[in-house]
Design a protein around this nucleic acid. Structure first.
Length: 267
DNA sequence: AACACGACCTGGTAGC
DNA sequence: TGCTACCAGGTCGTGT
């Protein structure tokens, strides 16, 4: 489910519902959730800590605690994070009881997500895995031109590389490339300046629209609906007509993932 | 260093 | 209806 726009929406909602609250207790019924950390040890360190704010970095949700500790939640493919009335009947991967009688629930059917505590001394190691935030001022056309010139990767794999551009995933990388009319297989260092400019603009435009849409989808308190109703231009549309040229959208496997594109107008 | 590929998991759905 | 095969928006480790 979650790429940058969806994670941003979840983080924002969690901030609205949980910032200022104190974690009374935490439970991790599955060892896998907190790997490689111990669930019991993590629960001890969360007890009676106040939630200062909730932010996002790449596809991580960061719950800021006192003493610069960060509770980091990665949703994986199927993670859902929300606040609910206590004693709800779900059996989640993690449960955080709050001092107002509600709790933060982390569900994740595929167990691909995780919850960890990041101590300030481990922050540099955490940060070193991630590149520029594509909606930040740091992500400029110049940034993209310089980094594109240094990578022989196919454009789609470059965009999905979290150490380059943090937060793009399979859907929004494909959508950005469609808008910029660039083939997902095109080597980054072969892009001419005009294409780089188009790609930079496309990423900003597509992500900003998705962020707005995702927030709307998640904006109602208590709502936990899944799925993204955003009208995709290419993602998941194999065999359907291209919105620009009417030729068929194609699905290919690239880097082990499905890639959707228009072979006619993406070059 | 850079890439490909399987592993990690469960659940939904298309097809027989 | 039931079974099988494939697919899923993400990493992570291992091997070349």
């Amino acid at each position: 489910m979650p790429e940058l726009p969806e994670v941003a929406a979840v983080a924002r909602r969690l901030h609205e519902s949980a910032a200022g609250r104190t974690i009374v207790s935490a439970k991790f019924p599955f060892a896998r959730t907190t790997r490689p950390q111990s669930g019991a040890a993590l629960a001890r360190r969360l007890k009676n800590r106040k939630i200062l704010k909730v932010t996002r970095r790449a596809k991580n949700i960061l719950i800021h605690l006192p003493d610069d500790d960060l509770l980091r939640i990665h949703l994986g493919m199927t993670g859902e994070l929300y606040t609910a009335d206590a004693a709800s009947d779900v059996s989640p991967r993690a449960r955080f009881a709050l001092d107002n009688g509600r709790e933060i629930i982390f569900e994740d059917s595929r167990h691909l997500g995780r919850v960890n505590l990041i101590h300030p001394r481990d922050l540099p190691a955490f940060e070193s895995g991630y590149g520029v935030e594509p909606l930040s001022d740091e992500f400029t056309e110049e940034w993209l031109r310089e980094h594109a010139a240094r990578s022989r990767k196919p454009a789609k794999l470059f965009l999905m590389d979290q150490s380059q551009v943090a937060g793009l995933g399979n859907i929004w990388a494909a959508e950005s490339l469609f808008v910029a009319r660039i083939s997902p297989f095109r080597a980054m260092n072969s892009l001419k300046p005009a294409k780089v400019r188009a790609l930079h603009a496309a990423i900003r435009e597509v992500l900003q629209a998705a962020v707005d849409s995702a927030y709307l989808n998640y904006s109602k308190p208590g709502e936990t609906e899944r799925g993204n109703t955003f009208p995709f231009a290419v993602y998941g549309r194999a065999g359907e007509p291209c919105l620009r040229c009417k030729r068929k959208i194609k699905r290919m496997v690239q880097g082990g993932r499905s890639t959707y594109y228009c072979p006619n107008c993406q070059r």
